[in-house]
Design a protein around this nucleic acid. Structure first.
Lengths: 218, 218
DNA sequence: TATATACGGTACTAGACAGTTTCGGATCTT
DNA sequence: AAGATCCGAAACTGTCTAGTACCGTATATA
């Protein structure tokens, strides 16, 4: 209690005394935590590693977060940045064109890094269920949402049937990419994603199977 | 070297002296390890937990496996038992019938338990890549193989087109179930699996979308 | 019977790590 | 200037656990 008051002061009432906490360091520390998390996993990660990576003192970290667990939860929750901008989704006129346009090297690279973070979090998910939700919201849900938007557009323009199971279909590529990275430990490359689009998604919505779209190469 | 000879004797040459090692305890210990692994994950698992669960002494474990890591690797490698019998796959005459017949409470329960083990292994996969392969072979690949067989049969009897991407399609239900259990922390129930079959798999192979198979309930 | 090893159980050793404290110095308010 | 709080760095504490050693007992060979 007595010790915690020192920390709580900053939030309870604006104490004016002393040097101010440099909050520009917060994101640097959180990013360092995410890097270590992706590289070593939650249990392998030590506070010293994070502090060293962020060129900060250990006490600085404990002044801001009460425990290792809270630090990680905060880091995951603040990860959303640099994600997909739904107002800038491709609009090529066809569903296939839109889905293919979503495949960009940067997007693949970013996705793999985030899935590595997810892998590092895995052991923690059973202990902190709310983290599962946060991680899903930050890592896979944005991509599923993008797919959902593109498919709904395709329905609106009459390209595909209105009774397609969009909710399930939009989860296919994120979840299969997760499976591939987390369990198979194989890279998610363009060829894999194209085969998902042409071999599963488009046939499932009634496109691609009638017309012979074999021999498609990425 | 000198100490290891005691262990190695049993394999190098049949030493006749002393009480024999009770190898009927091996599977009991390995099963205990898998249980603890599923419940607490690799890093949370301690040798004492496994020994207590198996009602064995810690020394007994270290007499048989040189380290915690080797024990876990062995436990995962010996997990294949109780898995799908490919000679007993359903054969209802239709792909949909076969896929639905694969959904059994025992199969679901077993699958979820194995995915919990997979979750517990996650943090170890980056350190022991060969374990990723073993875990995949024991946990998800059997189900993908079953799907492959059922779909190939459907091709052979002319029910679906021969150019379907079976390799990718057979991975859909295992990988989406893994995503659902590991990341979403939601149960894999019959309804979910049926929606995969009717909303994705069958439409993707050219069945189910033309005829209106909506309002299917599990 | 004598010897050697396995068994379950317990005590011990050594190292790693979360979290705390201390220190010299920097930065803020009053 | 004074006092309070921040900073990075490092020392320190308490706990946890992998792995080892030893105990008394059970079971095997010779």
């Amino acid at each position: 209690m007595t010790q915690l008051d020192l920390e709580a002061d900053t939030t309870e009432h604006p104490s004016k005394l002393g040097r101010k906490r440099d909050h520009t360091r917060d994101p640097e520390i959180l990013d360092a935590a995410l890097e270590v998390l992706a590289e070593t996993g939650y249990d392998g990660m030590t506070i010293d590693m994070v502090a060293a990576r962020a060129k900060a003192g250990k006490a600085t970290l404990y002044r801001r977060w009460p425990s290792k667990g809270e630090l990680v939860i905060d880091a995951v929750a603040c990860m959303k940045k640099g994600d997909i901008d739904y107002s800038q989704l491709p609009d090529t006129g066809t569903l296939r064109g839109d889905l293919l346009a979503m495949i960009k090297p940067h997007s693949i690279e970013d996705g793999e890094k985030k899935l590595q973070i997810m892998a590092g979090l895995m052991s923690m998910l059973s202990r902190a269920p709310e983290l599962a939700e946060a991680a899903n919201a930050a890592i896979v849900e944005p991509r599923a949402t993008a797919n959902r938007i593109l498919m709904r557009r395709a329905i609106d323009r009459g390209e595909i049937a209105a009774d397609c199971d969009i909710e399930t279909l939009s989860l296919i590529s994120p979840s299969m990419a997760a499976y591939r990275v987390l369990i198979l430990r194989k890279p998610v490359d363009r060829k894999f994603l194209v085969s998902l689009i042409d071999g599963v998604l488009l046939p499932a919505v009634g496109l691609g199977r009638p017309n012979d779209t074999r021999r498609e190469e990425g």
